[in-house]
Nucleic acid binder design. Structure first.
Length: 843
DNA sequence: GTAGGGTTAG
């Protein structure tokens, strides 16, 4: 609404007007030029000065002056000037027959629309109709623009109806305004309908439609339309370019952006502030920071928006320090930060964990009244959370009356980041409206905490509430699926993504590659990988990991070399993948080559995890002495993982002495690692040193530790059946036991001899054999044989390493029963086919 | 006359 009219020196008395009109005196030439100068005024103050001069000439109150005053005020279009114009207008309303009154109505409606006071535009339009003033073809674009600005689409529709009745529906300007109206309302069908029905289209018609598609996230369509427009011979304006360039920014498609820019240059479009800003934004969002920076630096008169663009993008890119540098430059240039500046700078502080600077920003926000804007205050909450001050965050959040979903999400995400899952899930349950981000946050957190089944449960709950997942959701879901090794579910996830048109970006594709690999389906994994349009180092690493898990060291190496050939620089994680692959396949020399290449060719010296991997590689291959020496020559302190790798190798190669030493070292670094003691007791047990086994077990018992039970699970018809050793609880246990007995007989006939050395009980042979036959993976395989069809794979997930006997057992089963068996243990897969295993008995 | 730039949480 128009603000209260302030007292003004310009007072018109209607007596004067009547007097002057009656006199009908011709203004003098110099007075005419003064009236003309009125339209050059830039603000109310200048208007008043001219008016003072006009007063001296004695013609200040003629109709032409009044007309000029109102129109100029409307054109200046500030709240102040509009107040002024309105006041003059209302005074004149009583004498409307004496001047071109429609012109004044139009000017005011236009003025209000241009400052965003759309409700005033609509109000004046309605009043004018009410008073019987007939609108013309100028009135409608103005009032429609007013409707669009305040998103008054219902009113806009009514105006559309009215102008149709009055026969204005073939006016290009009016149709342009209608396209804009429908575009802003997201109704592209209606916008397109108007566009298609136009007899004449100008650059604004095209631009409005293009802009609509950009707003509606149909950026490609927008760019296609742009090229179509140029093709049809219409020259783009700076406004058109601003829209198209921002479409390219949203897509992050540099190649397309460059094509658009080339087209812009060949059309000779003159740049303006908004266009330069859009260009800087595009280069930033396409990751070409140098180019953006160059344009920014070359720009001589940078405005606030341009500074904000640079700062926001720097923060988004994780370059908080650079954002602060630009901020200082901006202050030096004498510009006053607005709330968007503060959003960027508060986020920068959050990123840097700079509490002091962050609090200073908070102060500035309070002093300038930006704290009423939920955008800003949410960013402040986020900043306090990221600066590890949850109490400050709560202090703002708790009394907030305008908590939005984003406020809640910020709090939940903050707690999760700080590792406080309990308050996070409490807040999640408390929040009144959960949106996609809320669900993604909590599901992601559960996956991070390895609570995979809980994560999937929440995903189901989310769907039941009618919230559709997006690519972020699916990354978490795929990851959960992979860790659970649930292949049927994994296939469903892939299907869900394709059927719901979820854009499979690099991140999600990589998650799928990893998911299939962990579910023991390397073919599907590689299929997804090969379909990827672009592959970054993470994508390559996932595929290398897939081959490592499959046990195809050679294929992993081929992939690694191919990655380098394609110019993708391997990072520490990629090297870890290829070293693991070498280790799993016993490719000692190749592993050593990669290890050396890290420092020599890529300048990234191996970290302690890589050393651990090398110890594993040497140790598995039976080179225990070399592995030990390798540890002794490490440039950094070996940790529990490194010694643990040696210990594991000692178990495989039954070196009790070195195992004892390694276990001692491990305990020094990680006194709480239960697994190590169990590993050690396994070494003693396999060497028949039962006294030592008992001693270690006793120590564990005294400290209240217990061995995690070995467990195997198998998914049948979407249900996950879990077995632990000697577990009798399964409803079909009698069948399973009978099946196991039959299997043992048939395998014995086929030549299988139970390997009792891995039974860790100091009991007689018969009992040992019974215990051995009740290992969880055997139960799962037996259950798989009776509950799946003959041609089906039997897929078992085990939480620990497979024991040697179960491994041989599975090989025999695959041959005797002609079944493929896939077992995933704690770090790799075994594919059993026709009596052989993919690991070639090396694991 | 009608069209345009920078915006928090996963």
């Amino acid at each position: 609404m128009a603000a209260q009219l302030s007292p003004s020196p310009l007072i018109f008395h209607h007596e004067d007007i009547i007097l002057k009109t009656q006199n009908n005196s011709k203004p003098k030439t110099n007075a005419n030029s003064l009236i003309g100068s009125l339209s050059n005024c830039r603000n109310v103050k200048e208007l008043e000065q001219y008016h003072a001069q006009l007063t001296k000439t004695g013609i200040c109150k003629t109709i032409s002056v009044v007309n000029k005053m109102v129109v100029t005020c409307a054109e200046i279009a500030t709240l102040e000037s509009l107040d002024y114009a309105r006041k003059v207008f209302e005074l004149f309303a009583k004498y409307r027959e004496m001047c071109d009154f429609l012109f004044l109505w139009n000017s005011l409606i236009r003025g209000y629309a241009s400052v965003g006071l759309g409700d005033e535009s609509i109000f004046l339009y309605l009043r004018m109709m009410n008073e019987g003033v007939v609108p013309d073809n100028f009135t409608f674009p103005f009032v429609l623009s007013g409707c669009t600005k305040i998103l008054a689409f219902r009113e806009g529709n009514q105006v559309h109806g009215c102008l149709m009745k009055m026969g204005f529906n073939e006016d290009t300007f009016i149709q342009n305004s209608l396209i804009h109206l429908y575009s802003e309302n997201g109704d592209m069908e209606a916008a397109k309908l108007v566009f298609d029905g136009m007899l004449e289209r100008n650059v604004v018609s095209w631009t409005s439609l293009i802009r609509g598609y950009v707003r509606g996230d149909c950026e490609r369509k927008a760019v296609d339309l742009f090229f179509e427009m140029v093709e049809s011979g219409i020259r783009p304006s700076a406004v058109t370019m601003t829209c198209v360039v921002s479409a390219c920014a949203k897509l992050g498609d540099l190649e397309l952006g460059e094509r658009v820019c080339a087209c812009m240059r060949s059309c000779g479009v003159e740049e303006n502030d908004a266009l330069v800003n859009a260009l800087v934004d595009m280069y930033m969002k396409c990751g070409v920071i140098e180019t953006a920076k160059r344009i920014f630096d070359e720009c001589t008169d940078r405005n606030l928006v341009l500074y904000n663009t640079m700062m926001s993008n720097y923060v988004r890119e994780g370059l908080a320090k650079e954002a602060l540098t630009v901020f200082r430059e901006m202050l030096m240039a004498g510009l006053r930060p607005d709330y968007i500046t503060m959003l960027a700078i508060v986020s920068a502080c959050a990123e840097l964990g700079n509490l002091v600077y962050g609090m200073e920003c908070h102060g500035y926000i309070l002093r300038n009244g930006f704290n009423g804007l939920d955008y800003v205050i949410n960013a402040v909450i986020d900043m306090y959370m990221k600066c590890d001050e949850p109490d400050y965050a709560c202090y703002i959040f708790d009394p907030m009356v305008n908590k939005t979903t984003v406020s809640w999400n910020t709090m939940v995400a903050g707690f999760i980041r700080n590792g406080d899952i309990e308050p996070a899930s409490r807040m999640f349950n408390l929040m009144p409206d959960k949106d996609l981000v809320s669900w993604n946050t909590i599901i992601g957190a559960l996956v991070q905490e390895s609570l995979f089944e809980e994560a999937l449960e929440l995903f189901r709950m989310m769907q039941n509430k009618g919230v559709k997942g997006d690519k972020v959701t699916m990354v978490s879901v795929a990851s959960a699926c992979g860790y659970l090794g649930a292949l049927d579910l994994a296939k469903w996830v892939h299907y869900y993504i394709e059927n719901n048109e979820i854009t499979c970006d690099m991140c999600l594709s990589t998650a799928l590659v990893d998911m299939y690999a962990r579910c023991g389906d390397p073919q599907s994994s590689m299929q997804v990988f090969h379909k990827m349009r672009e592959k970054d180092v993470s994508a390559w690493t996932a595929s290398i990991g897939a081959m490592a898990m499959e046990g195809s060291g050679e294929k992993a190496i081929i992939l690694f070399d191919e990655m380098i050939k394609q110019g993708v620089k391997p990072d520490g994680v990629a090297f870890l993948g290829v070293l693991t692959a070498c280790s799993h396949s016993g490719l000692v020399e190749e592993g050593q080559r990669f290890f050396r290449s890290m420092k020599d060719d890529y300048g990234s010296p191996p970290k302690v995890v890589h050393y651990g991997c090398m110890v594993d590689l040497l140790g598995r291959a039976g080179m225990l002495k070399e592995a030990h020496k390798f540890i002794q020559n490490m440039p950094m302190e070996p940790n529990d993982v490194v010694w643990g790798a040696l210990l594991a190798a000692c178990r495989i190669h039954k070196n009790v002495e070195l195992a004892t030493y390694a276990a001692k070292r491990v305990t020094e670094f990680a006194p709480d690692r239960t697994g190590i003691h169990i590993l050690l007791s396994n070494v003693y047990a396999s060497a028949g040193k039962w006294c030592d086994v008992a001693r270690v077990r006793m120590q564990l018992k005294e400290k209240g530790w217990h061995k995690p039970p070995g467990s195997s699970s198998i998914e049948v018809n979407g249900t996950i059946n879990e077995f632990t050793a000697s577990d009798e609880s399964h409803p079909q246990m009698t069948h399973i036991a009978r099946m196991l007995e039959e299997m043992c007989c048939r395998l014995k006939d086929a030549g299988h001899v139970p390997n009792l050395s891995h039974v860790l009980l100091d009991v007689d042979e018969h009992e040992k054999e019974h215990a051995l036959n009740r290992h969880s993976e055997k139960l799962a395989i037996a259950f798989g044989l009776i509950s799946t069809d003959h041609g089906d794979q039997i897929r078992v997930i085990k939480n620990l390493r497979m024991c040697a006997d179960c491994h041989t057992f599975a090989k025999f089963v695959s041959d005797t029963y002609s079944r493929e068996i896939v077992v995933r243990d704690n770090n790799r897969f075994h594919f059993f086919r026709q009596g052989l295993c993919s690991c070639r008995d090396f694991w």
